[in-house]
Design a protein around this nucleic acid. Structure first.
Length: 562
RNA sequence: UGGCCCAUGGUGUAAUUGGCAACACUACUGAUUUUGGUUCAGUCAUUCUAGGUUCGAGUCCUAGUGGGCCAACCA
């Protein structure tokens, strides 16, 4: 059953087993159930890829269901953002569902539970109910209201619904077992009174169901066959099943909850609360700041949906605690971008280079390959002239043999252009290099086929023609936290590990063709990395975000020698 | 001092359900290269511990150790 020999994760094994035991493949159905109270992050991406991936594998529908039972935290803004993120990842849901669509059905079932003596209205304060819950090692005690009559319960519950009580006056509780070793089974609250406007039902309801009562029943209503959630819900499964027991009919699919470990990413935090904190306290500029592990942040940074999907596929799904190295995400971004990103030349830290034997006002338009990995990508023409910019790091007055770049008296190839030789440097009074003066070999033009053009020189540099270059703002992003697991330290706050150099702004010189780039366009700045045009860009002020650097074995070499 | 879950290289996941521990990333070698990129080749493990069952255990059993989760009118 496993197509293409791909190994199955434990959930796929479970489904295969269900299928072998006679569960009909046509009845498979999944869902992705976000709460619209924040932006989706890379952990959600994993869950999306899991559920929609299962849908694709088995040809089963996957619903997008908003778990919108808490009007105090949920907003339409988040619904819209979530839909955009799921679509951007490349998935289509079968139905767009809302738990709030089921409020009436849930209410009717709740009345049934009351009639069956399986739910009661408790009129105590929240703190008292909490106290009576007991502890993991001690049984709870029964509420004084636990044995109210059905008639009284029904009457109170209806009045709750009718808005006759203030918030906190009563709750509806399931009547299960105050001594259960599972605290969730100690008469969990099903409904609370909330005089709040809901983003979809407005003020129609003033009682709202809680997660446990809502989620499984929503799965059942939608006939979801496998309801997958993260590990912290494992203890909820017993309650999920208990609630289901109260409503299932024999000819319907009974949803099955199974749990997997959330994916943790190194050098970041993946918790809505902490991400919110980063936004609210101004450590980042918003939910879609390119340093954020949110889907919107990754998108803005220039990550592709393919890269994210491949990443999710590679890290897989299991039950053990994990910290996925962010280097793996970088790998997948590079891996995809290498295939699709057009090459372009941009100098991030420019220094002027003058070719003294090149004619003063001459301009040559040289052919440059757009992507050596993709012949279909074609080529473009770039201007070459007497004055250029090269990367400051690419020149040294003196250097050892390992330095393949330009040094005084040394030769280097200018990418797509000529071989040049550094003759002298001009400095200011303070000894800072102002200009590098070079000569070029006119016969060494790239692609000309001459003997001189075929000469092997060790280094190749990127460059831009000074009179033609356009300026651009480039935002160099680095990991947000310097510690691999910032939120795992017992006595230290994760904010202490913020990397002060997570963003560096730079004024770069880029080749003129970039003037027409559109926000979202992705490029490889040759020898520098992958970059994406930011929505902050205006026609006169290009802004690029660094998506990922290129692998840099030279930087490693240098570092190891220090 | 209750219940539940988990344990395989530095990291993440596999192992045809009891049959030579595999894949990817990282790191390190080397080759190729007009991107110090890409590509290619190679190196890196007593499967947490101790017993047991078995011809044979990463897989099954027992005990231990370590980690995680559970006491919101959040999801």
């Amino acid at each position: 059953m496993s197509e293409s020999g791909k190994p199955l994760n434990f959930l796929e094994h479970l489904i295969e087993e269900d299928l072998r035991n006679g569960f009909k493949k046509e009845l498979l159905r999944f869902r992705f159930p976000p709460e619209p109270n924040g932006y989706l992050h890379i952990g959600h991406a994993s869950s999306i890829c899991l559920n929609f991936g299962l849908g694709l594998r088995y040809g089963a529908p996957v619903n997008l269901r908003f778990d919108d039972t808490n009007p105090t935290k949920e907003e339409q803004e988040y619904v819209d953002a979530i839909k955009l993120d799921v679509e951007w990842l490349g998935y289509s849901w079968a139905k767009e569902c809302y738990a709030s669509d089921y409020f009436q059905q849930l209410y009717d079932w709740a009345e049934d539970l009351i009639r069956a003596g399986k739910a009661y209205v408790d009129s105590q304060k929240s703190e008292d109910i909490a106290k009576q819950k007991g502890t993991p090692t001690e049984a709870g005690v029964a509420s004084p209201y636990r044995d109210r009559s059905v008639a009284e319960n029904l009457e109170l519950f209806r009045k709750m619904k009718a808005g006759e009580f203030p918030e906190g006056a009563h709750v509806l509780r399931a009547r299960i077992d105050m001594a259960s070793p599972n605290m969730l089974m100690r008469d969990p609250v099903m409904y609370r009174i909330l005089h709040r406007s809901h983003h979809r039902t407005n003020t129609e309801w003033c009682i709202y169901p809680l997660y446990d009562w809502t989620h499984g029943e929503s799965d059942y209503i939608e006939q979801v066959s496998h309801s997958l959630c993260t590990l912290e819900f494992a203890p909820h499964r017993e309650l999920y099943d208990w609630f289901l027991d109260q409503v299932v009919e024999f000819d319907k699919v009974r949803p099955k909850q199974r749990e997997f470990a959330r994916r943790n990413l190194s050098h970041t935090v993946v918790s809505k609360r902490k991400l919110l904190q980063l936004v609210q306290q101004g450590f980042v500029k918003g939910w879609d700041d390119p340093r954020m592990p949110t889907i919107s942040g990754l998108r803005r940074r220039g990550c592709t949906p393919e890269a994210l999907r491949n990443f999710a596929q590679t890290i897989g799904i299991a039950k053990r605690d994990n910290v996925v190295d962010v280097a793996l995400l970088d790998f997948h971004m590079r891996e995809h971008l290498n295939r699709v990103a057009p090459r372009v030349m941009a100098v991030l830290d420019p220094i002027r280079l003058v070719i003294t034997n090149y004619e003063e006002a001459k301009v040559e338009w040289l052919e440059a390959e757009n992507n050596p990995e993709d012949p279909q990508a074609g080529s473009r023409e770039i201007p070459f002239s007497r004055e250029l910019y090269i990367e400051r790091d690419d020149f040294r007055e003196e250097a050892n043999r390992k330095f393949f770049r330009l040094r005084l008296g040394g030769e280097v190839r200018l990418k797509n252009a000529y071989i040049i030789k550094a003759e002298e440097v001009r400095k200011d009074a303070g000894g800072n290099i102002l200009e590098i003066h070079c000569t070029y070999d006119p016969k060494s033009k790239s692609g000309s086929g001459t003997e001189e053009s075929l000469r092997k020189v060790k280094g190749t540099l990127h460059w831009v023609s000074a009179p033609h270059a356009i300026e651009a703002e480039v935002r160099l992003y680095d990991r947000l936290f310097s510690d691999p697991t910032p939120d795992s330290h017992k006595d230290r706050d994760f904010l202490e590990f913020i990397n002060p150099e997570s963003l560096t702004l730079v004024r770069a010189k880029v080749e003129p063709g970039l003037a027409t780039a559109q926000p979202g366009d992705r490029f490889q700045f040759q020898r520098m990395g992958y970059f994406c045009l930011d929505p902050d860009s205006t026609p006169g002020n290009l802004v690029f975000n660094r998506t990922a650097t290129l692998r840099d074995t030279w930087a490693k070499l240098e570092q190891n020698e220090e």
